[in-house]
């Protein structure tokens, strides 16, 4: 199987660990790294998984420019059910546009949301929610905040405590077929071992055992108890 990692040099916020974790869980996978001036591997091939993670705002704009010629191809792969994971600030790329002061930056327009970026107001949040019957959680830290249109119903998971796409919004991320986009920062996959085990098993078509799985689950349960603790501010 082939995994395409888009713009690894740009990764931030612990998202390097998502890549390393995927590699550790799927040691036989071939990894194709795409740099900003390269033609994406997916342009002429069909990888089994495409990953893009957190990046700075300038690099986000470079990524949009680099991916724009391939947006139809990306859409085609989404429709075909190729597994795609976008985490943290890379999610913005999928929306219609980003507003930054008096600038409007057109994005790939694959999902029905827009982003308002405020460089002097950082949105830090925690989120707890449910997906496929199990609990998900994580931390978010970003300058851009996504607002879906009223018609948008392609969300990743329901939020039960804390913030979703924005404060008080109870949906987190976006999902269409096998594309998942979440604003949770790294290491999202390590924070959510039940999801990761199921997701990577689906990606690879075989049962995956996570590294040191028992300990991963124990850490998950501990953190879950903290996220549910009424005495803590989870927002």
């Amino acid at each position: 199987m082939t995994i395409e990692i888009l713009y690894k040099d740009y990764l931030l916020f612990g998202d390097e660990a998502n890549v390393d974790y995927i590699v550790k869980c799927l040691p036989d996978a071939e990894i194709s790294h795409t740099s900003i001036h390269d033609k994406p591997y997916f342009a002429e091939n069909e990888p089994d998984l495409i990953y893009m993670g957190a990046m700075s705002e300038n690099n986000q704009e470079r990524a949009i420019e680099a991916l724009m010629p391939y947006k139809d191809r990306l859409n085609e792969l989404i429709e075909k059910g190729v597994h795609i994971l976008f985490t943290s600030t890379s999610c913005d790329v999928l929306g219609k546009y980003i507003i930054d002061g008096d600038r409007k930056i057109d994005c790939l327009g694959l999902f029905d949301f827009t982003v308002e970026r405020k460089m002097l107001r950082r949105f830090n949040a925690m989120t707890l929610g449910t997906y496929n019957g199990y609990e998900m959680m994580g931390f978010k830290s970003q300058f851009g905040v996504a607002t879906p249109s009223a018609e948008c119903n392609e969300f990743f998971f329901d939020v039960t405590r804390g913030s979703g796409l924005y404060k008080d919004f109870k949906k987190e991320g976006f999902k269409r077929n096998n594309l998942i986009a979440t604003y949770i920062i790294g290491p999202f996959l390590i924070l959510n071992p039940i999801f990761t085990k199921e997701w990577l098993s689906n990606v690879s078509g075989k049962e995956i055992t996570l590294p040191f799985e028992d300990l991963a689950m124990e850490c998950y349960r501990n953190r879950l108890a903290e996220f549910k603790d009424e005495n803590r501010k989870i927002e």
Binding site: F13, G14, E16, A17, I185, P187, I190, E226, I234
Partner: peptide
Amino acid sequence: QDDSESITWHYE
């Protein structure tokens, strides 16, 4: 005491 510390930095 207030919430739960993010472990992001440990992975960097």
